[in-house]
């Protein structure tokens, strides 16, 4: 009985597993291999350079710039979309028809590709006629007008905000789902005990949103690590690397400078960082499941 079950499981798993191995595991191992070479991604010949690429990472200031930007991005990703999404979810929860319309509006950006989002925000940030600068002028804040994406001080944050605007919809939906699982009895009981809205929110609702919060934050962290498409569209990591994320940096080294070996080494480092963060996530999910089971 157990044996046939195993056989079937194996059989059903073999197809997806094969696909997974061909398009995920094999390229992964191949990039491990290339990270030890000086391949330019193009010539048939290359030679082994041992750990040289990894040593180069250690002394490359651009790599540390990209790490710093990725960390900034990650921290922003943890707070901006989740707090925004939570606020919207709380405001719109149980508001009936009108609430649903607003929910759909806030969720719509998720249906758009990041390339489209990036392009829309490029227009909003346009130095001459963009929405942001126009509004600033309208408020009499001409001094704050900027070439948002061309100024190395503002480029990274400008991209992060555009990205967070989209991610907020996703966080909202997850929090809304979490809110439906908060038992009415508990909030009513808190109300009878004399708790005001904030107290019941802080002591009852938010603790019960724990699992939803873990999902939102984990998704934010993972998405921030692979942040590439919107950076590619909006700044290409520029001006001069000020908005480089690890993924963007890897791309530029591999495909613009044709240092495929070095790019692969960066990919390996990015993979290891992701591995650590994801294992934390799975541990957290397991603990959560144990608590709630």
């Amino acid at each position: 009985m157990v044996r046939t079950r195993r056989l079937w499981t194996g059989l059903f798993l073999s197809l997806p597993l094969t696909i997974y191995i061909v398009i995920v595991v094999a390229p992964l191992l191949v990039s491990f291999y290339y990270s030890l070479t000086d391949w330019n991604g193009f010539n048939p010949e290359y030679s082994f350079v041992g750990a040289e690429n990894f040593l180069k990472i250690g002394r490359d200031p651009q790599f540390f710039g990209a790490i710093r930007n990725t960390v900034v991005w990650m921290v922003a990703a943890i707070f901006l979309p989740s707090l925004g999404g939570l606020a919207i979810a709380l405001a719109l929860n149980g508001r009936g028809f009108a609430g649903n319309i607003y929910k759909s509006l806030f969720f719509l950006p998720i249906c758009l590709s990041l390339v489209v989002i990036g392009q829309v925000w490029i227009w909003m940030y346009h130095p001459d006629w963009g929405l942001v600068n126009t509004v600033l002028s309208g408020l009499g804040l001409d001094g704050l007008r900027q070439a948002w994406l061309a100024n190395p001080q503002t480029a990274l944050w400008s991209v992060i905000i555009a990205w967070s605007w989209q991610q907020m919809g996703l966080a909202m939906v997850i929090f809304l789902a979490g809110l439906t699982s908060v038992p009415k009895e508990l909030t009513e009981a808190a109300e009878i005990d004399g708790a005001n809205y904030w107290q019941s929110l802080r002591r009852v609702v938010i603790p019960l949103l724990g699992p939803a919060t873990v999902v939102v934050i984990a998704l934010a962290i993972i998405n921030s690590l692979k942040s590439f498409d919107i950076v590619y569209v909006m700044t290409q990591g520029g001006p001069f690397h000020s908005s480089d994320t690890l993924a963007m940096f890897m791309y530029n080294e591999s495909f613009k400078k044709y240092y495929m070996g070095y790019g692969s080494a960066i990919a390996v480092v990015l993979f290891l960082i992701s591995l650590v963060l994801i294992s934390f996530y799975f541990r957290q999910v397991r603990i959560m499941n144990e608590v709630y089971d």
Partner: peptide, 17 residues
């Protein structure tokens, strides 16, 4: 060569800033 051009073009943009 392309990798050098990347460095140089970067410098020009930096310079204009």
């Amino acid at each position: 060569t392309p990798p050098m051009a990347e460095g140089g073009l970067n410098m020009f943009a930096q310079f204009m800033n």
